[in-house]
């Protein structure tokens, strides 16, 4: 089974710096980590490979420093790392990102399964998975919490819905976005770290992918951030006085009024 995992490098803190003109995140690679959701996607890919045999490709679109992330993915069990990097890719919204990622996956593939984390913690959109599936013309399922390949190019998938969950059979290849409950990511072994350090990471830019520059990066992004602002917390917080007993009484009275 050939599996691709999409990984994103995200800032390790929420103290991000923004480009004052385009309002997009300035990514300088400092204090960056793998998006926590994507770590679960990588783990699931490696587990599937371990039980069924196969090959895991970790792929990311990002700045050259995102190579570290792909080495780490190899350390945790991926067989190869592919970095899509080019100045023309910068400032991409979800449409441009999914277009570029789809081109990278087509070139690196074919794959039976493409796994993504449910969303990235810096953008919070959860849009890349479904947009990627559409760009590739593949079926997709979101909120996946269990994957069981059943042979004959199919997999049985359990996913979470508002009401509870669903069991769905999907024809492969397919794009699945995973929730964090699906597994617990492993730590890399010492041998793994060495493998990661020694791995040669494939780097593809605009020319290698043969993509349409007008559909990449800021140019290829239909959405534009026009304004960012600090949310007003106009709330007047009332600090309650008195001893614990009277504070508790006041809180219960307020709770009663709110719920009345």
């Amino acid at each position: 089974m050939r599996i691709a995992v999409c990984l994103k490098q995200v800032p390790s803190t929420n103290e991000v710096r923004l480009d004052p003109e385009t309002h997009t995140i300035l990514r300088d690679g400092r204090q960056s980590v793998v998006n926590p959701f994507d770590a679960h996607a990588l783990e699931e890919a490696v587990r599937l490979k371990e039980s069924l045999g196969g090959h895991v490709t970790a792929i990311s679109m990002g700045i050259p420093a995102a190579e570290t992330l792909l080495r780490d993915a190899v350390a945790r069990g991926a067989d190869e790392g592919v970095l899509l990097t080019d100045r023309a890719f910068a400032g991409a919204d979800t449409l441009a990102t999914s277009y570029t990622l789809a081109a990278g996956l087509r070139k690196a593939g074919p794959f039976d399964l493409i796994l993504c984390g449910k969303m990235a913690v810096d953008g919070d959109t959860a849009q890349i998975g479904p947009e990627l599936a559409q760009q590739l013309g593949l079926p997709h399922l979101t909120e996946v919490c269990e994957i069981t390949p059943v042979g004959e190019g199919r997999a049985r998938v359990r996913r979470l819905t508002q009401r509870g969950g669903q069991e769905v059979e999907v024809t492969l290849p397919a794009v699945l976005t995973l929730v964090r409950e699906i597994n617990t990511p492993r730590m890399p072994t010492l041998a793994g770290v060495r493998r990661g350090e020694a791995a040669s990471i494939v780097r593809w830019g605009l020319a290698e992918l043969g993509v349409d520059e007008s559909r990449c990066g800021l140019k290829g992004s239909p959405t534009q951030v026009v304004r960012t602002f600090v949310p007003v917390r106009a709330r007047e917080t009332a600090f309650l006085s008195g001893d614990a007993r009277s504070q508790a009484e006041q809180l219960l009275k307020i709770a009663g009024e709110v719920l009345a």
Binding site: T94, L95, Q127, P130, E131, T142, T223
Partner: peptide, 16 residues
Amino acid sequence: SLAPRLAARLGTGLTA
């Protein structure tokens, strides 16, 4: 799940 699939198909922007 539906909106991003459709946005990519229509080639338009989507804000989450």
